[in-house]
């Protein structure tokens, strides 16, 4: 492969364009790997749903232990995702941070609804807030993953 300059020659321009194009296609391949673990978003949704369902637990249940377990499972889920994809993306961009914040707010809202339903004597209706929380968390996780794929494939 040519690596000499000056740049005015058409073959040099062509070689440079080919190299730049190969970088783009490499990143596109990498972005595809982030799509592979299809359990990731539903996994996060399931953990949110479990959290939202905790008001339905009997009083004798150690809720602190359940919440700690959910946090640990979330961490393992993220670590598992990194291990399976072989890619680590640390930190959030603005869009991803906003999606994460929205997921937290939505989950907490559904949790508060569950608390109200449990206190009001409607434990079976908690299922509705659990399903809503699962769908919201899963959808937001999918959007976040899409943003991450965009981040990988569109580097300046």
């Amino acid at each position: 492969m040519e690596n000499n300059l000056p740049s005015g020659r058409p073959d040099q321009r062509n070689n440079a364009a080919i190299l730049l194009s190969s970088l783009e296609s490499d990143r596109a391949c990498l972005a595809k790997r982030l799509r592979e673990p299809r359990w990731f978003a539903p996994g996060l949704g399931a953990l949110a749903a479990l959290f939202i369902s905790t008001p339905a637990l009997p009083e004798s249940f150690n809720r602190g232990f359940v919440l700690t377990s959910l946090v640990m499972m979330s961490i393992f889920l993220v670590l598992g995702y990194q291990r399976v994809t072989g890619i680590k993306l640390l930190g959030f961009r603005l869009c991803e941070g906003a999606l994460f914040a929205l997921a937290i707010v939505t989950t907490l809202f559904c949790f508060s609804v569950s608390l109200g339903l449990a206190a009001g004597g409607f434990p079976w209706w908690i299922m509705a807030s659990v399903i809503a929380g699962f769908l919201a968390a899963t959808g937001l996780a999918l959007l976040g993953a899409s943003s991450m794929r965009g981040r990988v494939s569109n580097v300046d």
């Binding site: 690596n3 970088l23 490499d26 990498l30 890619i87 680590k88 640390l90």
Partner: peptide, 30 residues
């Protein structure tokens, strides 16, 4: 000149897109 070697350029290009990358993923992509 060092980075311009095509494989090394692609290695840097892939690593630039992420924070860390597994050796096997890099090998398979290249």
């Amino acid at each position: 000149e060092l980075v311009h070697e095509p494989i090394r350029l692609r290695i840097c290009g892939l690593l630039r897109a992420v924070d860390e990358l597994d050796f096997a993923v890099l090998r398979d992509t290249l």
